[in-house]
């Protein structure tokens, strides 16, 4: 099903928001006031967006340590996200989670996850919840190529087939598990093929082609909503930045990230296609760019000015304190 103009503009807004958010977090973490570990999603926007534009707040997603993009695509408030990254009280998790644990249950965002392979079991749990409660909701498990090797992932793929769960396993193959290449660490070199071997439909897509991702995701999500069980999508994609911010990336040839930005940019692909076929105009896209630039600027300014939690917050949200 082709997206109408309004939907396409929304999609572009989401992808551009993720890109500008991540490029800015890069700056704020490297030279600014964002503390801790951050892992940036820049380059992979088409996947989160192409999948999540088929979802509603009732649907759930499980994310990864590289989770800002999933958050934004799932509709989380960007300003509250930025506040969370700055460790502020008005952040999405009250400043307690930070980048690696950013979550928003109201949006069905079950959290970024600092354990590689932590999310697939949670996603099938959300899928089970939908199935048991008799809704037409679905769950999506986002995992990287690294997590695709984890036992938790294989166990979840199998369980989803056994219980015919409304779950979609999206594998974002950006070519790296931290500083090790997928060519080395995925034995068969075929993540999607492994998922298919568990007995579910599988599609491989170019992860920098929004339209390819969206189409594959719509089909898989439709199947899940109709009670036809799980599916898998393997999306080949690129990681513009290092594994984490500050990663010297000696394992990568110099300038590889920039080269990918120049040649495998999902946003440029989207622009070229929609402008080329006349669906959208440059004026419309430029207006969104300006709007997003302002939004992210404001998000940083407001996050910086926001209050930190009080020390008393240390002992809240836990069932008992000693």
């Amino acid at each position: 099903m082709a997206l109408d103009k309004e939907a396409l503009l929304a999609v572009y807004r989401t992808m551009q928001t993720i890109r500008v958010f991540e490029d800015r977090v890069h700056v704020e973490n490297t030279t600014g006031d964002i503390p801790g570990f951050v892992h940036l999603y820049a380059g992979e926007e088409a996947i989160a967006t192409g999948v999540c534009c088929n979802l509603t707040d009732a649907d759930a997603i499980g994310s990864t340590h590289r989770g800002h993009g999933h958050c934004i695509a799932k509709g989380c408030d960007v300003k509250a996200m930025m506040k969370e990254l700055f460790g502020k009280k008005e952040g999405l998790c009250g400043g307690k989670g930070g980048s690696m644990h950013i979550a928003d249950m109201e949006r069905g965002m079950l959290g970024a996850n600092a354990i590689v392979g932590g999310s697939p079991p949670l996603a099938i749990g959300a899928a089970l919840s939908h199935k048991t409660r008799g809704t037409d909701g679905v769950a999506v498990s986002f995992s990287g190529d690294g997590a695709s090797n984890q036992g938790t992932c294989f166990e979840s793929l199998n369980m989803a087939v056994v219980l015919k769960l409304p779950c979609i396993f999206v594998f974002e193959n950006n070519g790296f598990g931290e500083g090790t290449g997928a060519d080395y660490h995925v034995g068969s070199g075929d993540i999607g093929g492994r998922a298919a071997a568990f007995g579910m439909p599988m599609t491989k897509v170019d992860g920098v082609d929004f339209f390819a991702v969206q189409e594959a995701a719509a089909e898989a999500i439709g199947r899940a909503r109709r009670g036809e069980g799980p599916s898998a999508i393997e999306a080949d994609v690129v990681r513009f930045y290092g594994h984490y911010e500050g990663d010297p990336q000696g394992y990568r040839k110099k300038g590889e990230g920039d080269e990918m930005r120049a040649t495998r940019d999902c946003l440029k692909n989207f622009r070229d296609k929609t402008l080329g076929d006349g669906t959208l105009t440059a004026t419309e896209l430029d207006a969104i760019d300006a709007e997003i630039a302002q939004l992210i600027d404001e998000a940083v300014v407001e996050a910086r000015a926001a209050e930190f939690p009080s020390v008393n917050d240390l002992l809240t949200d836990v069932y008992i304190s000693y």
Partner: peptide, 15 residues
Amino acid sequence: DVAGGAGCSGDRGTY
């Protein structure tokens, strides 16, 4: 990544 860089375009052992 006790060495790092296996299957990558850069150097082995820098991680």
